[in-house]
Amino acid sequence: GEEMDTAEIARQVKEQLIKHNIGQRIFGHYVLGLSQGSVSEILARPKPWNKLTVRGKEPFHKMKQFLSDEQNILALRSIQGR
């Protein structure tokens, strides 16, 4: 696969979550399948791509996919709003 700019992906995700008022817990649960603790760690201190294991890269693939389609963001927003 291609190398990803993990810091940039994390920054964009944080931006979207704040902009749409989506909590990290909801994002972690529905998008990444991770706990809030793992999510906040990944978003606060993303490791460089070449330092990640295959498993460590997974959340970034999912985040990139999440960012690529605004429908994903809107869907999360409606879950959050319940």
Score class of each variant (00 low, 15 high):
residue 22 I to G: 01
residue 25 R to D: 15
residue 81 G to Y: 08
residue 48 P to I: 04
residue 36 Q to E: 14
residue 18 I to A: 13
residue 9 I to T: 06
residue 32 L to V: 04
residue 78 S to L: 09
residue 2 E to G: 08
residue 51 K to N: 13
residue 63 M to G: 00
residue 40 S to L: 09
residue 67 L to Q: 00
residue 30 Y to E: 12
residue 33 G to I: 00
residue 60 F to K: 00
residue 15 E to V: 07
residue 50 N to G: 09
residue 54 V to N: 15
residue 62 K to P: 00
residue 46 P to M: 04
residue 8 E to N: 07
residue 60 F to I: 05
residue 60 F to Q: 02
residue 23 G to T: 12
residue 47 K to P: 11
residue 23 G to R: 11
residue 1 G to A: 11
residue 40 S to T: 14
residue 11 R to N: 07
residue 18 I to C: 13
residue 15 E to D: 07
residue 52 L to E: 00
residue 40 S to C: 11
residue 68 S to I: 07
residue 82 R to I: 10
residue 40 S to R: 13
residue 61 H to L: 15
residue 18 I to D: 14
residue 66 F to D: 00
residue 47 K to N: 05
residue 52 L to I: 03
residue 20 H to I: 03
residue 72 N to E: 10
residue 62 K to C: 04
residue 46 P to H: 02
residue 46 P to K: 00
residue 45 R to S: 14
residue 77 R to H: 10
residue 78 S to N: 13
residue 40 S to V: 08
residue 15 E to C: 15
residue 81 G to H: 14
residue 56 G to V: 05
residue 17 L to P: 03
residue 71 Q to S: 14
residue 52 L to C: 04
residue 50 N to H: 10
residue 69 D to Y: 05
residue 30 Y to S: 07
residue 23 G to A: 13
residue 56 G to E: 15
residue 27 F to D: 01
residue 73 I to W: 14
residue 6 T to Q: 00
residue 57 K to S: 05
residue 13 V to M: 06
residue 18 I to P: 02
residue 21 N to M: 04
residue 41 E to K: 02
residue 2 E to D: 08
residue 23 G to S: 14
residue 48 P to W: 05
residue 61 H to Y: 15
residue 48 P to H: 08
residue 71 Q to K: 14
residue 6 T to Y: 01
residue 37 G to E: 15
residue 59 P to L: 15
residue 30 Y to M: 09
residue 76 L to R: 00
residue 28 G to I: 06
residue 29 H to K: 13
residue 4 M to K: 05
residue 56 G to D: 14
residue 45 R to I: 05
residue 8 E to I: 07
residue 6 T to S: 04
residue 48 P to F: 03
residue 51 K to C: 09
residue 30 Y to Q: 10
residue 23 G to C: 11
residue 68 S to N: 09
residue 18 I to K: 15
residue 52 L to N: 00
residue 3 E to A: 11
residue 2 E to C: 08
residue 18 I to N: 13
residue 45 R to T: 13
residue 65 Q to S: 11
residue 57 K to A: 07
residue 45 R to N: 13
residue 54 V to M: 15
residue 79 I to Y: 10
residue 44 A to E: 15
residue 64 K to R: 11
residue 55 R to L: 11
residue 27 F to N: 01
residue 8 E to T: 09
residue 33 G to L: 01
residue 6 T to P: 04
residue 75 A to L: 11
residue 32 L to G: 01
residue 57 K to H: 04
residue 9 I to F: 03
residue 63 M to V: 01
residue 30 Y to F: 09
residue 15 E to N: 05
residue 38 S to N: 12
residue 59 P to H: 14
residue 42 I to L: 12
residue 45 R to D: 12
residue 47 K to I: 10
residue 3 E to K: 11
residue 63 M to D: 00
residue 77 R to C: 12
residue 25 R to E: 15
residue 47 K to E: 12
residue 50 N to W: 08
residue 30 Y to H: 13
residue 27 F to M: 01
residue 64 K to C: 06
residue 82 R to Y: 10
residue 64 K to T: 06
residue 67 L to I: 05
residue 57 K to T: 04
residue 40 S to Y: 09
residue 69 D to E: 08
residue 47 K to W: 05
residue 21 N to E: 11
residue 13 V to Q: 03
residue 21 N to P: 02
residue 64 K to F: 08
residue 60 F to A: 00
residue 35 S to H: 06
residue 7 A to L: 10
residue 47 K to F: 05
residue 6 T to E: 00
residue 69 D to C: 08
residue 66 F to M: 02
residue 10 A to Y: 01
residue 8 E to P: 00
residue 41 E to A: 09
residue 10 A to W: 02
residue 22 I to A: 01
residue 21 N to Y: 04
residue 33 G to S: 05
residue 45 R to K: 13
residue 81 G to T: 14
residue 39 V to C: 12
residue 4 M to A: 04
residue 79 I to E: 11
residue 80 Q to L: 09
residue 2 E to A: 09
residue 69 D to V: 05
residue 30 Y to R: 07
residue 74 L to M: 10
residue 51 K to P: 00
residue 48 P to C: 06
residue 54 V to E: 15
residue 50 N to P: 13
residue 42 I to K: 02
residue 15 E to G: 05
residue 18 I to L: 12
residue 68 S to P: 02
residue 63 M to T: 01
residue 71 Q to V: 07
residue 27 F to T: 00
residue 5 D to W: 01
residue 61 H to F: 15
residue 15 E to S: 14
residue 53 T to P: 06
residue 62 K to E: 04
residue 21 N to I: 00
residue 31 V to K: 00
residue 47 K to G: 06
residue 36 Q to A: 13
residue 58 E to L: 09
residue 64 K to I: 13
residue 17 L to C: 04
residue 5 D to S: 10
residue 17 L to S: 03
residue 19 K to S: 07
residue 53 T to Q: 05
residue 18 I to R: 14
residue 5 D to Y: 03
residue 37 G to M: 13
residue 34 L to K: 05
residue 9 I to L: 09
residue 54 V to G: 11
residue 24 Q to I: 12
residue 79 I to A: 11
residue 35 S to L: 04
residue 10 A to I: 06
residue 15 E to F: 05
residue 71 Q to M: 08
residue 19 K to L: 07
residue 79 I to Q: 13
residue 1 G to K: 12
residue 23 G to Q: 14
residue 73 I to L: 11
residue 75 A to C: 09
residue 63 M to L: 04
residue 54 V to D: 14
residue 52 L to F: 00
residue 30 Y to G: 03
residue 25 R to V: 10
residue 46 P to N: 02
residue 71 Q to Y: 06
residue 60 F to E: 01
residue 32 L to R: 00
residue 48 P to M: 06
residue 17 L to V: 02
residue 26 I to Q: 11
residue 43 L to N: 00
residue 25 R to T: 14
residue 38 S to E: 15
residue 62 K to G: 02
residue 37 G to T: 15
residue 61 H to E: 13
residue 9 I to Y: 04
residue 11 R to I: 04
residue 59 P to K: 12
residue 31 V to C: 07
residue 71 Q to I: 07
residue 28 G to L: 05
residue 35 S to M: 06
residue 14 K to D: 05
residue 11 R to H: 09
residue 43 L to S: 01
residue 37 G to L: 12
residue 59 P to T: 15
residue 53 T to S: 14
residue 81 G to W: 10
residue 47 K to M: 11
residue 69 D to F: 06
residue 69 D to R: 07
residue 78 S to Y: 07
residue 19 K to V: 06
residue 44 A to G: 12
residue 23 G to K: 13
